[in-house]
Computed example of a mutant assay.
Amino acid sequence: MWARALAGIGPGFLLSAGLVGLFTWMLPGPWQDTLVPGLIAFFVVWIGVMGASFQFSSGKRAWAWLGGLAAVTLGALWLLQWLQWLG
């Protein structure tokens, strides 16, 4: 149980940041206009990810899935920045 909870806190935090970052990047307008709604959405998404981490059958699976998805989302943000598609 503790491993799943920590997976929701650690990699879940990074996954939530990546998801909200990708979503706010797609919104029209400058990034300053999406800052406050993005911060509010981040906490909602993070709570959802923390709750979903308890649906995994083991802590190892939670860490693997959440860590892998966090790496994918943050990697996508890095790639978009490297391609200079992000401001």
Rank of each mutant, 00 (worst) to 15 (best):
G48I: 03
F42D: 13
V36H: 08
W82V: 12
R61K: 15
L14I: 09
L74W: 05
L86W: 06
A17G: 10
W46K: 08
L19I: 09
W25G: 13
K60N: 08
V45A: 09
T24V: 15
G8T: 08
G48S: 05
L69F: 10
R61V: 03
L79M: 07
Q55R: 14
A64N: 06
L6T: 15
R4Y: 07
S16R: 01
L86T: 14
L69N: 01
Q32L: 13
W25H: 13
G21C: 02
L39C: 14
I9S: 12
V45N: 06
Q84C: 08
G29V: 13
L14W: 09
G18D: 02
S16H: 02
F54Q: 11
G8E: 08
L35A: 12
T34Y: 07
Q81T: 09
A62T: 00
W46H: 14
L15D: 04
A70Y: 03
G51N: 11
W82F: 05
L69A: 07
L22G: 02
T34F: 06
F43S: 08
W2T: 15
A41Y: 09
L15W: 02
A76I: 09
G18W: 00
P28K: 10
W2H: 14
A76K: 02
L14S: 10
Q84S: 11
L83C: 06
L14A: 15
T24M: 14
L74E: 06
L77H: 03
P11F: 05
V72H: 00
F13W: 13
G67V: 04
L27W: 10
G59P: 03
S16Y: 00
G87N: 11
R4I: 05
R4D: 02
M1C: 10
V36M: 14
V45I: 15
V36F: 13
T24W: 04
P37T: 05
G10Y: 04
L77K: 04
G68D: 05
L19V: 13
Q32H: 04
F56R: 02
G12A: 11
A71E: 00
F13Y: 14
P37N: 09
A41C: 10
G18M: 02
A41S: 15
V49I: 15
A7G: 13
L15S: 06
A76D: 00
L35R: 10
W82G: 01
A41W: 10
Q81A: 13
V20E: 07
W63K: 01
W2N: 15
D33Q: 12
G67P: 05
M50E: 02
Q84I: 09
G75D: 00
W82T: 11
A64H: 04
W85C: 04
G75S: 06
Q32C: 01
L27K: 06
I47L: 11
W25V: 10
F54I: 07
W78Q: 03
V20R: 05
V20M: 08
W63V: 03
D33K: 10
W2I: 15
V36T: 13
T24P: 06
W78C: 05
A52I: 12
W63P: 00
M26E: 11
I47N: 03
